[in-house]
Structures are given as structure tokens and as C-alpha cells.
């Protein structure tokens, strides 16, 4: 794809400039929501959706090539499988102490970032799974049906 055609993809200059400023902040906010899921409102589900929305924002503003260069479909499906395997292996590691889904790590000091045992790790796994899954759904709905119109 030539340089000129890439400039034409996506929306106008105003939208692109604003997107360049805000997309990093949206991603950072999603990561904050995931990591503090056991202390403040939030958790893996909304954090994953916010992270997926930051990539979708990039795709809507710059066209699909720029976003797919950052995270393409194969890597997104790999992230989703990694989230599922991580969640299941955390659950299976509970057999060390007794039963499935045992909270086997020490609780730590309450109200700190590193506390509550396996719950932050589970939050990260859920975030990977939800974010990659929803991004994959959006890419499939937009890209595959748009290719057909040409």
C-alpha cells in the first residue's frame, strides 16, 4: 500500500490528532482498572473491554492496517488462548493445597496492591481473554465483511 493511500485511510486530521493523544491514556486506564480490581470497582471484565476499545478506537480513526500492525488476528487469538490457559492453570494449581480454585497464595497485607492471593492473577487472565476475544469479534465483523464489498 502506498504512502498516499495510507494517509487517506481512516478519518480526518482532527480525529487522528486527538486519537494520537488519547489512545495511550485509554490503554493506561484499562490496565489500572485491571490491576486494582480487588481494591476498587473494576476488575477483569471492564478492564478487558476498555483495552479492546482502545485498539478499536485506533482502528476506527486510522483505518484497519495501522491497528492490525499493532495487534493482528493471529496474535489476538493467541492472547485469548493464553488467557484461557492461564485461568485454568491457576485453578488447577489449587490442587496443591486441596481442591479446584483454591486460593493457595498467601493473602498478604490487606488494602495493598499485592494482596488477596490469586485474585489479581485471575483478573489479568480474564482481562486477556475478554479483551482479545472482543477485539477478534470486532475485527472479524469489520474486516472480513468489508473485503467482500470490494
Amino acid at each position: 500500500m502506498s504512502k498516499m493511500k495510507q494517509d487517506q485511510a481512516g478519518m480526518t486530521l482532527i480525529v487522528k490528532t486527538i486519537t494520537r493523544l488519547t489512545v495511550g491514556l485509554i490503554l493506561l486506564y484499562g490496565i489500572y482498572i485491571v490491576l486494582h480490581g480487588h481494591l476498587t470497582p473494576g476488575g477483569g471484565f471492564p478492564g478487558g473491554v476498555i483495552i479492546a476499545l482502545s485498539f478499536i478506537h485506533l482502528m476506527l480513526a486510522f483505518g484497519k492496517e495501522t491497528a492490525l500492525k499493532k495487534l493482528d488476528q493471529i496474535r489476538a487469538s493467541l492472547f485469548e488462548s493464553a488467557g484461557a490457559i492461564m485461568f485454568l492453570s491457576i485453578a488447577s494449581l489449587g490442587f496443591v493445597g486441596g481442591y479446584f480454585f483454591l486460593n493457595f497464595i498467601g493473602k498478604g497485607r490487606p488494602f495493598n496492591l499485592f494482596s488477596a492471593g490469586t485474585i489479581p492473577l485471575c483478573n489479568i487472565a480474564i482481562c486477556l481473554k475478554v479483551g482479545a476475544g472482543l477485539f477478534l469479534i470486532f475485527v472479524t465483523l469489520v474486516v472480513l465483511s468489508k473485503m467482500e464489498e470490494r
Binding site: G42, G43, P110, N123
Partner: peptide, 11 residues
């Protein structure tokens, strides 16, 4: 040990 009780119920 989680302060957010919804998170502790979910996970």
C-alpha cells in the same frame, strides 16, 4: 483478603 467483595465473589 480482597477489599472489593464483588471481585472476591466472582473469582
Amino acid at each position: 483478603g480482597a477489599a472489593n467483595l464483588v471481585s472476591s465473589v466472582v473469582l
